[in-house]
């Protein structure tokens, strides 16, 4: 099993506020890792540090063993290898669904249009949005937008996908259609790191679950370990809170 991303001693401060304190963990190829934890515990910040949206204060982020925080490391190239799915979808509003899935391929990866289009189509089909390739984001429901956003990330053919609460901004009746897509990806061997509040989904789809608390990973284990036999007092407290 090869390691895709490894985080070592990661710290992130916003001014005086130390949001991440010595976070260590690894994501292996083909693995689905879920991050849970209370609001403000630093889940988004961790994800944003991993794809360099935020610059860590100290520590290392290794991608296939190489530290991406080195000054000469090509951050833009690295980001093409990590797809990101946002809570607020963030589809490019000046483009159609298809263009959203093509622009990165043509403008960043330098692929010819025809090839980019074929790849984009295959992923839009996969998320069930092939019918809507000509629609603009504002013409789509939240669930549809998020599925296009997933197709956009997939179209870059990344090595891993990062999700930051992909269903939190959705109306309840649309959560299912997005979870089905993520679940399908989880079982197709995609490497994924998912921040989520959907505990049921975590239990079913994740190989490992990390519980974050006040800037540290307080406990990490299989879904059975975390949900059925949490060792940490805080994990237990958090789980009993979200269950009610």
């Amino acid at each position: 099993m090869s390691i895709v991303v490894e985080v070592r001693n990661l710290r992130k401060c916003f001014g005086q506020n130390e949001v991440l304190k010595n976070v260590d963990f690894t994501v292996n190829r083909g693995e689905v890792v879920s991050i849970i934890g209370a609001s403000g515990s630093g889940k988004s910040t961790l994800l944003r540090c991993i794809n360099l949206m935020e610059w860590p204060t100290s520590g290392q982020i290794l991608f296939h063993g190489q530290n991406v925080l080195e000054p000469k490391y090509d951050a833009n190239h690295y980001r093409t290898k990590l797809g990101m799915v946002f809570q607020q979808f963030n589809l490019f509003s000046n483009m159609t669904a298809l263009e959203n899935c093509m622009v990165g391929q043509t403008k960043v990866l330098g692929k010819p249009k025809a090839e980019a289009r074929a790849i984009a189509m295959s992923h839009l089909e996969r998320v069930g949005m092939a019918q809507f390739i000509n629609a603009r984001p504002r013409q789509l429901s939240g669930g549809q937008q998020q599925r296009v956003a997933i197709a956009r990330a997939l179209s870059m053919e990344p090595e891993a996908l990062l999700f930051d609460e992909p269903t939190s901004a959705l109306d309840p009746e649309m959560v299912g259609e997005v979870l089905v897509v993520i679940d399908e990806l989880a079982h197709s061997g995609m490497t994924m790191l998912i921040v989520t509040h959907e505990m049921q989904f975590c239990k079913e789809a994740a190989h490992r679950v990390a519980f974050m608390d006040e800037g540290v990973i307080a406990e990490m284990g299989t879904p059975e370990e975390i949900f059925n036999n949490p060792r940490n007092e805080r994990t237990r407290a958090f789980l009993s809170r979200v269950r009610n």
Binding site: M53, G83, F92, S93
Partner: peptide, 13 residues
């Protein structure tokens, strides 16, 4: 919206 920039950066732009 800042999300537009973040999405663009996240695909390597």
């Amino acid at each position: 919206d800042k999300g537009q920039t973040e999405a663009a950066r996240s695909i390597g732009m």
